[in-house]
Every structure is written in structure tokens, then in C-alpha cells.
């Protein structure tokens, strides 16, 4: 007993289908078909030029037995640990400074945001030069003789520094828009009560900005777990420290498009998605403890 649509409603429906058609067809061809393909490929052995045969969970077995794979997983997690907390805290600091009554506010904001509009390829290039062990300006300034990019201990630290430098402005702009939404009256009330600035920060600013902070954190974690371009540009494939720095997506790129193991590479991608899923779930469970939505 379905109610027949009126002619006008039917017409509306036809228009709607027509208008979503390009996007939906595009998503099916460009994303959903490839998604299924990647999944199937991860259970296949690929030969040269496209042909592939089913080989069960062998790619996964091979992957879980590979020290290089586990090292890449650890490198990816380490990269997140090194970049995300420090990056977010610095971004919050910049956002708070920019939220104060300062002159040239938009000028400062524009400067911090600058790395966002530069291709990571170009940015990595100048940092490679600054981190250069023999002639780099960073060693000169610090008075050190560290081979930043060719020492297995420092290479990932150098990459993390560049990642933090690149993302501070973007995260700060997001956090700044959160700070600007906090009503001034809260601070006035706190001042009348004689609350110190530090107290105001922890009892007003932090809870009020926690939803924005949460979004920023999720976005930063997701993009750090997928890091590729920056490390690719900083650490060449011929660099002996590559195994100590290469992220999962770097390993994926090399397996899929340098070594030609598309099946094995697909298993790596599936694993990465799994990892991202776990981290996201943990975040969403953890947020209940610190994110404050009742404003």
C-alpha cells in the first residue's frame, strides 16, 4: 500500500536523481569499485602486467612475518607520537597568542599559515638542505655535527620537525576559530571572581575549545598515519636509513609501484586502514572523558 507520488513530487525526484547522478556514478567508478578491487588484490598474487591469481591469505602471512613491515608500522606510530602532541600544543599556543589583542594579527596569521600553500615537495627540499650534515645551517646554528638525515636515530626526528613546522599554522587557524567562539562574558565573570589567567585557561578556555581540539586532533592523527610525501622527499630510496624512517604508505608506494607487488601492497593498505580505524575508535571512546559538548 505505497502512496503514489504526486506528479510534482515525481518530477522533483527525477530532477534529484539527475543531479546526484554524476557524483554517485563517479564515486562508484572511482572509489567503490577500486575499494573492492584493493580488497580482492590483497588476497591475490600479482604477476607482471595486471594478471593476478588468488592466493588466499599468503600476502598477509608474508606481511606479518616481515620485519620491514613491522618496522614501518612502528615508524608510522612513532611519527604520530613525535608530531601530533607537540604540534597540537604549539598550534594551541599560537592560536591563543593570535586571539589576544595584538596588532598585525592577520599578518601573523598569514605567516604561520604559509607552509599550507606550499607543495610539500618544495618545503621538504629546503629542509633537506638545512638539515644537511656537512653544510646545513641547522648544524651551524646549533654548533653540532649531526648527520641528521643519514643517522638512523635522528632521521625520523628531522622529518617530525618538518611535519610540525608545516602543520602548526593550519591547526592554529582551526583552533583560533574555536577560541573566537568563546563568549567574552565567561572571562569577565572569572575576572570578577578573581580567577588567575592560568585558572581561566584550564577552567574556561580548555573545556570550551575541547570540541575543536578533538576535531583537530582526529584530523592530524589521520593525516600523520598516512604520511608519505614528506618522508619520500626527505629520505631517498637509496638512503641507508630508509628502513628506520619509512612509513607504511612509503612502504606501500615502493611495493606497489617500484617493486610491482600490487597484491602485497594492497595488504599493507588494508592494514593501514585497520590501524586508522582502531586509532579513531580509541579517540571516540576517549573523547567522552575530556571533550565537553554541553555548551
Amino acid at each position: 500500500m505505497r502512496k503514489a507520488l504526486s506528479p510534482a513530487a515525481r518530477k522533483e525526484q527525477h530532477w534529484a536523481w539527475l543531479m546526484v547522478a554524476p557524483t554517485i556514478i563517479g564515486l562508484l567508478v572511482l572509489n567503490y569499485y577500486p575499494l573492492i578491487q584493493t580488497f580482492i588484490l590483497s588476497f591475490s598474487k600479482t604477476k607482471t602486467f595486471g594478471a593476478s591469481t588468488f592466493n588466499g591469505i599468503n600476502n598477509y602471512i608474508e606481511m606479518f612475518q616481515s620485519p620491514e613491515f613491522w618496522k614501518a608500522t612502528w615508524n608510522t606510530i612513532l611519527f604520530c607520537i613525535l608530531t601530533v602532541p607537540v604540534g597540537i600544543i604549539l598550534a594551541l599556543l599560537v592560536a591563543i597568542l593570535l586571539n589576544a589583542k595584538v596588532k598585525f594579527k592577520s599578518g601573523f596569521r598569514a605567516i604561520y599559515f604559509l607552509p599550507m600553500v606550499c607543495a610539500p615537495a618544495a618545503i621538504a627540499m629546503v629542509w633537506r638542505w638545512m638539515f644537511n650534515g656537512e653544510y646545513g645551517i641547522i648544524n651551524t646554528v646549533l654548533g653540532t655535527k649531526i648527520s641528521w638525515l643519514t643517522d638512523s636515530k635522528t632521521a625520523i626526528v628531522a622529518c617530525a620537525i618538518v611535519a610540525i613546522w608545516s602543520s602548526i599554522g593550519y591547526d592554529a587557524v582551526l583552533l583560533l576559530s574555536g577560541l573566537q567562539n568563546i563568549s567574552k562574558s565567561y572571562y569577565e565573570a572569572a575576572r570578577i571572581d578573581g580567577a588567575s589567567r592560568v585558572k581561566q585557561f584550564f577552567s574556561i578556555t580548555l573545556p570550551m575549545i575541547s570540541p575543536t581540539l578533538f576535531v583537530t586532533l582526529i584530523m592530524r592523527l589521520m593525516s600523520s598515519l598516512k604520511v608519505y610525501d614528506l618522508i619520500y622527499m626527505m629520505i631517498d630510496q637509496s638512503n641507508p636509513v630508509l628502513p628506520d624512517v619509512q612509513s607504511l604508505m612509503y612502504l606501500f608506494y615502493r611495493e606497489a609501484f617500484v617493486a610491482g607487488n600490487k597484491g602485497y601492497a594492497s595488504a599493507i593498505v588494508i592494514w593501514t586502514i585497520f590501524l586508522i580505524g582502531i586509532v579513531t575508535v580509541i579517540q571516540f571512546i576517549g573523547q567522552k572523558k575530556w571533550v565537553n559538548y554541553d555548551v
Binding site: 572511482l30 569499485y33 577500486p34 575499494l35 584493493t38 589521520m222 606501500f252 606497489a256 594492497s266 593498505v269
Partner: peptide, 14 residues
């Protein structure tokens, strides 16, 4: 919600 890398190989093959 899906990272673009999951599409790369099949997009290339297509």
C-alpha cells in the same frame, strides 16, 4: 572517511 591510498592501485590499473 577512507584514505585515498586505498584507491590508488585499482585507479592506476583502470
Amino acid at each position: 572517511m577512507m584514505p585515498s591510498q586505498i584507491f590508488v592501485i585499482p585507479q592506476y590499473q583502470m
